[in-house]
Write a protein that binds this DNA or RNA. Structure first.
Lengths: 167, 167
DNA sequence: CTGTAATAGTTGCATATGCAACCAAGTCAA
DNA sequence: TTGACTTGGTTGCATATGCAACTATTACAG
């Protein structure tokens, strides 16, 4: 007997794979910008951008918002602090937590990179078409939301594996 | 004077960022599968999947198809070989190159993981809706294609940065 | 042929990451 | 209060990764 007539798996149709390739391609392109200009890493740039957008907050908040590993945040914050881009001040409410905020220089850097990012994003949207870009935006957000609140979906937990909080 | 009225940058609308989050969320969920079952890494799984889909080929081909760094491929291939999942044989045409192919066990593993992957992908598509999934698929491919052939697009090279081949 | 440039892969090294274990501070019931 | 449990962050360690330098071939101009 031959093997059962299972549908063959094609990596080129596997969404996680395609998402990764697209993410890598677009992120790496922009990475050269903040890397060349400020020697920043992807994680650092994201934390800077989050602080720039939402204002002062704690490392824990950054983790919750951006889904970056706690240790990754911890180390990136240490580096950003050393570079004088952010300050850490003990939270008045909880002495365990530290409030993170951009310094003047941090704000300047954010403003600069933010403009580059906008141009980069515009170029990408133009290249794939505004309609496709808009719908991509919506779908990506939905996927991210699914991973965030797995319990609310009808998913068999496939997407939810290894989300420590939920166990 | 206040700062110029530049549009504020919002990370939550930045496609590279959203792509990364979605890619991470979906890939990590599936990662637990091949990791728990075969102790494989993401790169290893992808190489296995490429060989499973396209048949024997050289490391160079894998790089071209999957856009994985050559050193990453080199090391993953070494590991996969050590695990008895693939074999390497000198290419008859070019003594520098080595032809990579799945072993019987490699094919078995690929078949197994492939089925899991299909189920995983189906769950994801169902969760976001078939229409959205289909259009996502198309858009992602387009983005990937843009990065591959930057010269053909009207892009100002934004997406094309650091593609060694092109310089 | 012969010397130079390009190519397939590998490896050294410095950095980035993930996970588990670990502090210190807060919470809460009894 | 006190003692068990949770939570914000950090650190140790093993692994993964990126880039540059290097070896072995192959390609090719003259």
């Amino acid at each position: 007997m031959e093997t059962a007539p299972q549908p063959a798996f094609d990596l080129q149709d596997f969404l996680p794979y395609l998402l990764n390739q697209a993410a890598e391609a677009t992120s790496r392109a922009f990475q050269t910008t903040y890397r060349a200009a400020y020697g920043m890493t992807r994680t650092q740039w994201r934390i800077l951008a989050n602080l720039g957008k939402f204002g002062a907050m704690t490392a824990r908040d950054i983790c919750a918002i951006s889904h970056i590993e706690k240790t990754k945040v911890s180390r990136a914050v240490a580096t950003l602090t050393a570079q004088g881009l952010i300050t850490r001040s003990a939270s008045p409410k909880d002495r365990r937590a530290e409030l993170l905020a951009l310094t003047d220089r941090g704000r300047t850097v954010f403003a600069d990179l933010g403009q580059h990012a906008i141009r980069h994003d515009d170029a990408l949207r133009a290249a794939i078409g505004q309609d496709a870009a808009a719908s991509l935006h919506v779908t990506l957000r939905r996927i991210i939301a699914l991973a965030e609140a797995p319990a609310k979906t009808g998913l068999p937990g496939q997407l939810a594996v290894n989300t420590p909080r939920s166990i």
